[in-house]
Structure formats: structure tokens, C-alpha cells
């Protein structure tokens, strides 16, 4: 053995990881370093979420594609053809798809994150790892839905011969906001779901309400000026607006209120993370 290796071994022996276990008080740190240490597990959990869900289904991962397609067709038929909702001169299928993409990403993320703690109870009660990974994996698994919807969007844009715009480079920003918001809502709901199973009933209802309060089926332009300000505090409004603007140049680019809504989102995210940390210490005792 080379002398250098011996020295290294000795250092490792002298300073082993020293874990102190005691009741944490007050606002402890978020423990993000711990989460980073376990990043591989995060990857596995996201992968398991999708792999596990679609095994032994006849259509398999096709479901990921089927959902946005069917949603798009339904919305186009009901709201585009029958109700004739204005769509800022963009073909309604494209108009709805541009909204369904971030919305599906957001709502699937919220749904999975909110029930993640209860669903993974058997694991949580038997082994330690930073619990934060579980809702994060739930929210991040929306990326699969996103990838599938993106493929459909590209095909649809090819069919409608939509020209590509430089503004498309803004899309990642809007996606990050959507991910942040879904994680924020997901963390809050996951924390609440530990004590109150009411959350599982409330979450679908909440998502439905939020969908009507976001410009998924209609353009922002028909929202009355009087409530426009409050309406735009919803981060998803800016996200969907931004998607349509950067993809087709339709409607307005997100206004200054979008920044305000991002601020609110960050507030919800940080507070959600802290409230989650406070609960995670004793989550096993309550569930």
C-alpha cells in the first residue's frame, strides 16, 4: 500500500460521520445538503413513480401521450368548436395544447407530491433518508408528462406549420416557475395530508378550481380588468400566458405582475419547505 493511501485511511478513521440525534427545536435548517447527498435516490424514486405505475398496463407509457391528446381534443371540441371561446387567433388545438403542457406538468406534480408521504409510508417508517426527497420526486415526476406533451406539441406545431420564434428560449423559465409552484403547493399539501386525510379529497377539487382560475381554456384577454390584478397573482396565469406568447406570439407577454406572482411562489415554496421540515421529524408517529 502506498503511504498516501494509509494516511487517507487514517483521516477517514479519525473523523467518522458524527450524527447527533435529539429533538430539534425551532426553525432548523432546511437540510438541503442532505437532500443533495441522496440525489441518486431522488432519481430512482422519480423513475419508480413512472415505471411502477405503467407496468402491466396494455398501453404502457402510451398513457402519458394519450392523456394530453384526449384533453386537447375534448377542449377543442367543447370550447373551440361548440362554445367558440376566443383563442387570440391561434388555432384552438394549439392554443389549448400550449396551456395543457405546463398545466399537466403542474397538476400531475401537485397530485403526486401531495399524496407522496402517505403513499410511501411503509418506506418512511422503516428507513431514514431526507424525507424532502419524496415530495420532490413526486413533483419532478411531472417531467415525464411534460416530455410526452412536448412531443405532441411539436407534432401539432408541424401540422399547423407554426413558425419557430426566438422567444421560445423563454420556455425553460416558465417551466421552472411551474415546477417551483407545483413543489410549493405539493409540499404544503403533503405536510397537511400527514395529519388530515381530507387533503386527498381536497386536492382534486383544488386543482379543478385552480384550472378555471388559470387561462387554460380561455385567453387572459377576456378576463375583466377589474379582477385582472388578483387573477395574475396566480403563477400559472403568467406561465400559461408566457407559453402562448413565446410559442405563437399571441396575447401579451407576461407583465410585471408575473414577477410578483413569482415572489409569492417563492414565499410559498420556502414556507412549504420549512413547514415540511418541521413535520418530517415526527411524521412516522402521526401517520
Amino acid at each position: 500500500m502506498k503511504p498516501s493511501t494509509i494516511a487517507k485511511d487514517r483521516i477517514l478513521e479519525i473523523s467518522p460521520p458524527n450524527i447527533v440525534i435529539e429533538q430539534s427545536r425551532g426553525w432548523a435548517s432546511l437540510g438541503l445538503r442532505d437532500v443533495w447527498e441522496y440525489r441518486e435516490l431522488l432519481g430512482y424514486l422519480v423513475w419508480r413513480e413512472i415505471q411502477g405505475a405503467y407496468r402491466q398496463t396494455a398501453l404502457g407509457v402510451t398513457w402519458l401521450f394519450l392523456r394530453p391528446i384526449v384533453n386537447m381534443l375534448l377542449l377543442s371540441f367543447v370550447f373551440g368548436t361548440m362554445v367558440r371561446v376566443p383563442s387570440d387567433d391561434v388555432p384552438y388545438p394549439l392554443f389549448s395544447l400550449a396551456a395543457l403542457l405546463p398545466w399537466g406538468f403542474f397538476s400531475n406534480g401537485v397530485l403526486r407530491a401531495s399524496r407522496s408521504l402517505v403513499d410511501n409510508m411503509h418506506v418512511i417508517s422503516k428507513v431514514y433518508f431526507p424525507r424532502m426527497i419524496i415530495p420532490v420526486a413526486g413533483a419532478a415526476s411531472g417531467l415525464y408528462d411534460l416530455a410526452a406533451s412536448l412531443v405532441i406539441l411539436i407534432i401539432a406545431m408541424l401540422i399547423y406549420r407554426t413558425p419557430l420564434r426566438v422567444e421560445i428560449l423563454w420556455l425553460p423559465i416558465f417551466l421552472i416557475v411551474a415546477l417551483g409552484f407545483s413543489l410549493a403547493v405539493g409540499l404544503w399539501l403533503a405536510t397537511l395530508s400527514v395529519k388530515y386525510r381530507d387533503v386527498s379529497f381536497a386536492v382534486t377539487f383544488l386543482l379543478q378550481a385552480l384550472m378555471y382560475m388559470s387561462p387554460v381554456i380561455y385567453p387572459v384577454s377576456i378576463v375583466p380588468q377589474a379582477i385582472r390584478f388578483i387573477y395574475q397573482l396566480n403563477p400559472m396565469t403568467g406561465v400559461i400566458q408566457g407559453f402562448r406568447w413565446s410559442l405563437f406570439g399571441s396575447g401579451q407577454p407576461p407583465e410585471i405582475t408575473f414577477l410578483l406572482s413569482i415572489g409569492l411562489m417563492i414565499l410559498a415554496l420556502v414556507s412549504g419547505a420549512y413547514i415540511f421540515r418541521r413535520t418530517e421529524r415526527t411524521v412516522v408517529d402521526i401517520l
Binding site: 458524527n18 435529539e22 415526527t282
Partner: peptide, 17 residues
């Protein structure tokens, strides 16, 4: 194994668990 926290008292663990 850090699955739940003690109500009081403390434990120190030296090494990978």
C-alpha cells in the same frame, strides 16, 4: 436509525449507520 426523533435526551452515533 433516525426514523423518528426522541422527545428528549440525545444520542450520538459515530459512523455510517
Amino acid at each position: 436509525s433516525r426514523i423518528t426523533e426522541p422527545t428528549s435526551g440525545r444520542a450520538v452515533i459515530n459512523g455510517r449507520v
